[in-house]
Amino acid sequence: MKSKAQPKSGFSFADSERVERILSQYPNKKSATLPLLHLAQSQEGYISSSVIDTIADLVDCHQSVVMDCVSFYTMLYTKLQGRHIIQVCQTLSCSLNGADSLVDHIRDKYEIEPGGTTADDRFTLMKVECLGSCGTAPVVQVNNDYHEGLSLEEFDQLLESLE
């Protein structure tokens, strides 16, 4: 339970109907934690401490319990990322099909290291583990979209097209 001494949370969901729908479909509130975290991140871009406060209230548990969950999952970000999150799969099949050269390319051209964000906040680069599309290696996920079977030229054009 949230301590009464804490200031009122600074985050609220824009789509409160959707929040109600999510909460009502599960047999218990806590199961709604991940869907609410996804929803919050799609609104805010990351999971701030006030997001955690709000969700803890909604699912009726302590903030530390929500934070415990957040810290486990690689897709939940605790700080703001660039406008485009470039996730290059580096697991075996992608690695055998040129994933490393994609990473080298974006690193050299945009002066960005894996895990980092460009100075203009355009790109955040991540090397990620298997994206489950090994048949179309190499695969890059940009925000929610998969880009499959990318040549170096296609990858370059893709990056150019992202403002």
């Binding site: 479909q25 991940l34 869907p35 486990f72 999952y73 690689t74 897709m75 939940l76 298997c130």
Partner: peptide
Amino acid sequence: LDVIVHRGAGAY
């Protein structure tokens, strides 16, 4: 029967 789609968050 009701069915819910529940998304994971990147954990093998």
